[in-house]
Design a binder for these strands. Structure first.
Lengths: 342, 342
DNA sequence: TTTAGCACTCTAAGGGCGAGAGTGCTAATC
DNA sequence: GATTAGCACTCTCGCCCTTAGAGTGCTAAA
């Protein structure tokens, strides 16, 4: 669909004014805020047209207009200036400073989600890097106590993960070394997925070679068993989104929190977006969740050594500042990719 | 202060009814719900007395009574049945099941906070075990990539922690082994606190012995630098506390979220409680936080091998179910202590 | 000391009212 | 044909008033 210049201007004006004022936008408002050289009556005619197109709606007869999901969609696809950087130098510095303090991956993910929350005034979400396609680079066992062994695995991308294994019998340090050597020899350079698949076969093989070690093999298999594990997500501060006027009704807040605290909900939305394009915006009803029909989610991929490995997102009301959010996500994703890739 | 039997009964009734109904309690309600053999007028006289003592208050002239902080305090100290287990068998099984699934410490802490939230319908909080008094048992370095080394430290209690060190130059695996051997030799059995203090001196000593390793010593020092690190806390689900009627005003919710998302606030409250006794209840204004004056925090210590190492808490409105919360915390703390101590 | 009875107070819910915001239509104008 | 002034119309929101009802506190009697 193509809109005349004036209709585009007016639709753009409604979206912008609604985003900033959080109140239905009147013809009078548009003319005065944008210093347009047309009368309010003309604007009213156009508003009516835009409403007929399905881009705008009215809460009631004597109210101004608000964008519909379709209106936001048109705005986001056709009108919104991409490539514009809405971050101030102070904000950029703030981001870099916070990233500099963070020391481990959990901390980095946490900081990222908090930064997104703060800079967009909505909820920041981070989907941690997925490691399943990584290859095994190193593995090491450390005894925590008689019954527990800590396994640390390092992947080719410089990521790592850990599992605790409970054992029944004593396993000597020597045996642990032997096992890690075997695993490194057999699985070095193989993707974790493959390791997971092949492990079972290997177990039977080594079971006979190293009878004394039998009890531990099954535990090690669990180390690489990613299937049951969902992706890990980090949620930023809730206090900002709480202040958005759309959540002044507690009922809405309940919906929101029920939704975000069921981790698989956000994971599924973000995982879908991640496959589509670098930045993906899902608006209101497009989320396909009745309870969330007045929320939008913007998702931005991030990389590790050039490969897409995860995503960061903003969750806010459909009336969120899309352009600012995109800028924030872009900048943070780049910083994050850089830090992770080093 | 000592109350007559009847006054105690009535105060107890007010607290219970208010906790369950979330509405000011009338004389009529007390008599009918508790089947007391006295008239409402008598109850009214007693209520007035309890109000004069400062245990009860009225929202307005023609309303029933609600407990004051002082009233809750008296209830908690004198009236509340401790030693009663308010958990159903199903709830206990649920707790055990959830704990059985959890595989690493982060997961255990997360699950604990979620369980507390769910079972108390308030916010569960977990203060992770403090390791600073632990002694160093093992240390191991693994190269993540050219510029990053993962250090894993294990303590005598079977806990572990990790730090990532960024290095400028290449450090061979051989050198890493040497360094870990040195550290193990010098610091084995010393508390992390002491390691932290002595490290600086050692650095100068080894600086000369192993010139080639100089760049890494300072990084290792950072591994044991706990001072700047605050204790780690885990917050459970927010969706339950959100449904408590006291938070139907958004303003209250803002206060609450601003408070809980500033981590040091909860850390400081819980840390104070942890020193006092096994279970500590802080009610409303006792928190010393104006914004939180209608909330209470119950804190329960947990152990690792018999030593107090952290705490779990419930944060809810002052009108929370103290006895149920205590039961939940008690049971979970015991399970947690057991799992951690194994 | 307890209780019946009753006056009194305050809230919460509902209805009515008027101001104001903003539209949509009509007819005039460019 | 597009734009605009003018105006009737609609709906919300805040305000006030009223009323019902909940619950107290007091008084006087048991």
């Amino acid at each position: 669909m193509i809109l005349s210049d004036r209709l585009s201007t007016i639709l753009n004006a409604v979206v912008h004014l609604y985003i900033t004022k959080a109140e239905p936008v009147s013809s009078e408002m548009i003319v005065s805020y944008y210093g347009l050289d047309i009368s309010t009556a003309t604007v009213r005619n156009d508003l009516k047209l835009l409403e007929e197109f399905g881009f705008l709606k009215k809460p009631h007869t004597s109210a101004g207009r608000t964008p519909t999901d379709k209106g936001y969609r048109f705005y986001v696809d056709q009108l919104m200036q991409k490539d514009v950087d809405y971050l101030s130098d102070e904000e950029k510095q703030e981001i870099r400073d916070e990233f500099n303090i963070a020391r481990d991956y959990n901390e980095i993910m946490r900081v990222t989600s908090v930064l997104i929350s703060r800079l967009t005034n909505n909820l920041g979400v981070v989907l941690a890097p997925n490691m399943i396609k990584d290859t095994l680079k190193d593995i090491h066992f450390m005894a925590l106590n008689d019954q527990r062994i800590l396994a640390t695995m390092v992947t080719n991308s410089g990521l790592f993960f850990q599992k605790i294994m409970r054992v029944n019998c004593d396993i000597s340090e020597e045996n642990l070394k032997t096992i890690s050597k075997i695993i490194k020899k057999e699985f070095y350079g193989k993707s974790l997925e493959v390791v997971n698949e092949e492990m079972l076969n290997q177990i039977y093989c080594y079971y006979f070679k190293y009878r004394t070690l039998d009890s531990i093999w099954e535990l090690i298999e669990n180390c690489f068993n990613f299937t049951e594990e969902e992706a890990k997500i980090f949620l930023g501060n809730r206090s900002y989104i709480l202040r958005q006027p759309e959540f002044k009704e507690i009922r809405r807040l309940n919906y929101l929190f029920d939704f975000i605290e069921e981790e698989k909900n956000l994971i599924s939305i973000i995982s879908k977006s991640i496959l589509k394009k670098q930045i993906d915006i899902v608006i209101g009803s497009e989320l396909g969740q009745e309870a969330m029909e007045d929320c939008s989610v913007i998702t931005r991929q991030y990389n590790l050594k050039g490969k897409i490995r995860g995503a960061i997102s903003v969750l806010g009301p459909t009336r969120m500042n899309y352009s600012k959010s995109v800028s924030v996500l872009d900048f943070i994703a780049n910083e994050l990719s850089e830090i992770l890739s080093e």
